[in-house]
Nucleic acid binder design. Structure first.
Lengths: 338, 338
DNA sequence: TTGTAGGCGTTATCAT
DNA sequence: ATGATAACGCCTACAA
C-alpha cells in the first residue's frame, strides 16, 4: 500500500515549508497565487489527501453533527432526518445518527458517546420516558449547540422545533364536533411527552368550548403499538359511552383502529368519525381515507438543520436560541365526513 | 470554561509519566493494579475525558462506519438502518449516515466525503442510476470493508446482503397463477437495478413454466412514484389485455394501484388479483389487505452490521467476503384470494 | 510572502 | 512496572 503523502512530503518536493503548503491548501490570503498553484497542482499530482484526524485534533472540532432519535424506522422520523441530512450535507457536515429506542437510558448513553466523539452540535428528539435531562448538561456547559425537535423540553439556550400540538389538537377536535360528534374519545400516546399532552389540552379546550362532557372515559392513554389496538376497541365498546368521534394521536394507530372497528361492524364515518395525526402515507390509502393533521416532518428537518448550521457558523448567537413553531394543517378526508 | 484535563495533567498530579497514565486508562497488562487504581480514581476525580481526536489521529481510525442509502425516508431503508445502528452501537461504533437521493453523482460525493472523513467501513445501498463504481475504488484499494445491501453490485472482496429476488418474483407470480390468473402484469421499478430485474426474471420464469404469454405488454417499467399510478391504470385498461393478476414491485405502489382500480370499479381480488412486495405496514391496512413478499429489512440491517463488525475485528478475513442471502416469504392476504 | 517551531492529546517503541 | 521520546499530520502564532 502506497504510503500516504503529507504536507511535509509536498513541502520537501516543492522546496518550501510545510506551513506554506498548509496555507496554500487552505487558500490563505497571505500566500501568493503562484505558490498556491504550484502547491495545489503538485498535491493533485501526488494524490495528496488531507488527514481529517489531524485537522480535527488541531482544530478540536469534527465537522460532525450528532442526532438522537427515538426510532429510525418511523416514517415521520426518517422524513425529519432526510431534511436534516440534506442541509447538513450541503454545509459540509456529516451526521452521526443514533437511536434511543425510546429508552432514556439508551438516550443517556448515546448523548455521552456523541459528546465524547466530539460532535460539533446535537439534535435530539426525546425518548418516550425521558424525564431527566442531566445528560445534556455537558453540551450546554460547553456551548455545544443543542436543538430539540418535535419531542422537546425546555432547556436554557436550546432551540426547539415543533408544531403547535395544542392548537392542532383543538382544530382536529373542533372539526369532529362540527361534523356532529357529541361523544369524543382522544386516544393518546404517553402523556409525559409534550406532543401528546399538548394535543390533549387542545382536545379538552375544544370539548369545553362546545359544552361537551370530558371525563376519564374520554381519554385513553396507550402506547400506540399495534398490540394495543384491542384495548382501544374494548374501551370504545365497553365503556357504555356511545362514542361517535375519535381523535387518535397518530395515523398508524388510527388506521389500525379503523380496520378493527370495521370488523366489529361499525360504519366509518357514519357511526364513528375519526381524525388521525401525522399525514402518514397510509392515511390516504386506507378505506375510508383518514382525516388527519399534516405534520411537516421534512420541513422540521430542514429548519433544524438550518438552525444548527447557523449556530455553528456563528451567524446566530448561541444565546439567541429560538423556538420555531411550524404550521400544521387539518386534512379532511372520508373518515370524518358527515 | 474549565480547561480540559489531559493525561499530562494526571501524570503531573500523580507523579508518574504520561505513558503510565495512558496505559492505566487502557487497562494495559504491564501496569500494576495499584497504579491503575490510583490513575483511574484520580481521573474520575478530576473529570478527565479522553480526547477522541487525538486517539483517532494516533490510531488512524475513527470508530465510525459510513452508510449511504438512497433515501432515508423510506420505511424499508429506515428499518434496515435501525438494524445496522443497533449492532454498530453495541460494538462501540458510530454511524455516519448520508443519502444519495437516488443520484449517482450524490453517491459519488458521499462516498468521497466519507472516505475523506476516515470511516473504518462503508455500507451502501446503491442509488437508482448508479452504473459506474469507480467511487468505491479507494475503499477496495485500502482494504476498507465495503458491504452492499439490497441494491448491490458485484465488486471484488465486497460482501453483499440480499434476498433472492428472482425466487421471490417466481413465488409471487406462481401464486397468482395458482389462484387462477391467466393474464399477468409485472409493474416494475427501474430495470437497471438488480432487485427489479431479478424479480422480472422470476416473473418470466413462472409465466413460462405455466405456458402463459409474456410479451412487452406484460411488463410495465415505472418509477413507482405516486404520480405514475395513472400511467399504470391506463396500461391496465387500454392495452386490450384482460389483466387478472398484478405483481407490483413494492407495496406502496401496489396500494395506490389498488385504490385507483377500486375507483375504476374493478373488484379486487375478483377481477384482478394483486401481490405486492416488502410487507410494508401499509399492506395489512388497506382494503382488501395486500398479499406481499416479506422483506426482512431489520434482519438485513442486523446481518450487515454483524458482517462489518466482524471484518473490522478481523474475525472474518477481508478476502473471504461473503454474500448473504436472506429468506423471504410469501404472505397471502385478501388481495389475491380466489 | 514565507519559514520556524510549538502545540493539539494519545499511542507506541525503546529503554531502564 | 515505569519512564522518555518520538511519532501521528496539521494549524498557527511569531519571526524574518
Amino acid at each position: 500500500m502506497d504510503k500516504r503523502i503529507t504536507i511535509y512530503d509536498l513541502a520537501k518536493t516543492l522546496g518550501v515549508s510545510a506551513g506554506t503548503v498548509s496555507r496554500s491548501l487552505n487558500d490563505h490570503p497571505s500566500i501568493s497565487q503562484k505558490t498556491k498553484d504550484r502547491v495545489i497542482s503538485k498535491a493533485n499530482e501526488l494524490g495528496y489527501k488531507t488527514n481529517k484526524f489531524a485537522v480535527n485534533l488541531s482544530k478540536q472540532k469534527s465537522n460532525t453533527i450528532g442526532v438522537i432519535v427515538p426510532k429510525l424506522n418511523s416514517i415521520f422520523m426518517s422524513t425529519v432526518l432526510a431534511g436534516i441530512e440534506k442541509i447538513a450535507n450541503e454545509a459540509g457536515y456529516n451526521l452521526i445518527i443514533s437511536q434511543s429506542l425510546e429508552s432514556m437510558e439508551k438516550e443517556k448513553i448515546n448523548a455521552k458517546t456523541l459528546y465524547d466523539s466530539g460532535v460539533d452540535a446535537l439534535l435530539v428528539s426525546l425518548a418516550y420516558d425521558t424525564s431527566n435531562f442531566d445528560h445534556f448538561a455537558n453540551y450546554i456547559k460547553n456551548k455545544i449547540p443543542l436543538i430539540f425537535i418535535d419531542r422537546v423540553t425546555n432547556l436554557p439556550n436550546c432551540s426547539t422545533i415543533i408544531i403547535d400540538n395544542k392548537l392542532a389538537g383543538f382544530v382536529a377536535t373542533e372539526h369532529l364536533i362540527a361534523q356532529g360528534c357529541k361523544n369524543l374519545l382522544y386516544i393518546s400516546g404517553n402523556l409525559k411527552q409534550n406532543v401528546y399532552s399538548e394535543r390533549l389540552k387542545g382536545f379538552q379546550e375544544a370539548v369545553a368550548k362546545h359544552n361537551l362532557i370530558f371525563n376519564n372515559a374520554n381519554l385513553l392513554e396507550s402506547d400506540l403499538s399495534p398490540g394495543s389496538v384491542k384495548q382501544a376497541i374494548t374501551h370504545i365498546k365497553d365503556t357504555g359511552i356511545p362514542f361517535d368521534g375519535l381523535f387518535v394521536a397518530n395515523d398508524s394507530f388510527a388506521a389500525h383502529c379503523l380496520k378493527e372497528l370495521k370488523k366489529e361492524n361499525y360504519k366509518i364515518p357514519q357511526d364513528i368519525k375519526i381524525v388521525g395525526f401525522n399525514n402518514d402515507p397510509i392515511s390516504d390509502l386506507v378505506t375510508p381515507t383518514l382525516s388527519t393533521i399534516n405534520y411537516p416532518g421534512y420541513e422540521m428537518g430542514i429548519l433544524a438543520g438550518q438552525s444548527v448550521i447557523s449556530q455553528l457558523n456563528g451567524s446566530i448567537d448561541f444565546q439567541a436560541a429560538n423556538s420555531i413553531t411550524l404550521r400544521h394543517e387539518l386534512i379532511i378526508r372520508e373518515s370524518s365526513l358527515k
